[in-house]
Nucleic acid binder design. Structure first.
Lengths: 183, 183
DNA sequence: CTGTACATGTAATACGTTACATGATTCA
DNA sequence: TGAATCATGTAACGTATTACATGTACAG
């Protein structure tokens, strides 16, 4: 059991950082771009939080500054403790499955709405996820899925997104039918 | 446009409270139970946060204490401002669609794992969602879906859960196949 | 020489969890 | 009378967002 276990449970932004740094070293600025390019859909990161967590990871000894460059650039790399912690998190830490969904919360109070208002919400839901699905199919075409370790696995995550957006649309269609048949 | 709009965007626990109080008045203790019975899967609430938010809603004039009982019990009811805010949130506020998923985050770093380690994660994922789906199908049988305004809409939310858990299992199966065919 | 990109940080605020803290009422 | 339930609250901490703040290097 890692000595650092207690301090790192559930802090997934930091594990995302460790994961990206396991592929290649980089600065906070690099990491921000990599997050936006690859992990944005599963774990969005803001600039502010990223820099703070980099300093925490460094002071915990999980990453270290390996070189400094122009404009105060600090290049970070994983330490061996960081690599251990990353592996530990991947295989031993139960994923957090708590989900909050404020569309579904709204659904519970549909009785307060007119049929047209409820229909508008569901149609918007269907449209938003149809568009998200289109975006993912475009991404699927535009990325070279054979290049690099992230791409290979990214395809598996993208498949989840494709299935999720499809499910959302089908559910919204089903719910729209309920609106007509019930009541 | 509501004067309170700025203060209530994104605070969905409070809207969950408003929604439950729209059905019938109740105490913090009542609300805690109602959350656990009905909304737990879409918006979990802790006792601590609930009592704090009740006081905030009351000081914002969205709910009010309508009677006090034994053991310091305070029964809350919606005010007309609260009812307005609830309707406004339902129809005018764009749902927050930001999702974080630390299983998918792990997927991006599957290259760091052996095939057996990756397989174990995906099999666990499939098992967890199979069990969750079973629980939902039991719930479906045990609840009288014709009784009360929450049940009617709860069935629509449950349908989402049934489809979501099914999708997760199918995705995990697909990903397990990829593990065998690729690499 | 000017704008864009590179580069890092802090402060204020909000939301959420866990643990701590206290006490009244009811029922067996 | 003791245990379970009813009932409300605070404190400490962690995570996330937005806005603020500052400055360097490079390319056209």
């Amino acid at each position: 059991m890692s000595m650092l276990e207690a301090t790192l449970i559930g802090m997934s932004l930091r594990h995302g950082i460790l994961g990206l740094l396991s592929i290649r070293p980089g600065s906070g600025y690099d990491l921000l771009n990599w997050f936006q390019e690859t992990l944005a859909n599963v774990w969005p990161a803001t600039q502010s939080q990223l820099y703070g967590d980099l300093n925490k990871l460094a002071s915990d000894g999980l990453i270290e500054v390996t070189s400094t460059g122009a404009r105060g650039r600090k290049e970070y790399a994983l330490t061996s403790a960081g690599r251990e912690e990353l592996h530990h998190w991947l295989v031993d830490v139960e994923p957090n499955r708590v989900r909050r969904n404020d569309m579904l919360l709204r659904v519970f109070f549909f009785s307060l709405l007119s049929r047209d208002e409820a229909r508008a919400l569901l149609e918007r839901e269907r449209a938003v996820f149809a568009e998200a699905g289109d975006g993912m199919r475009e991404l699927e075409k535009s990325v070279d899925w054979t290049q690099g370790p992230l791409a290979d696995n990214g395809r598996i995550a993208l498949e989840w997104g494709l299935r999720y957006t499809k499910m959302q649309q089908e559910w919204a269609d089903w719910a729209l039918e309920q609106l007509d048949t019930e009541r």
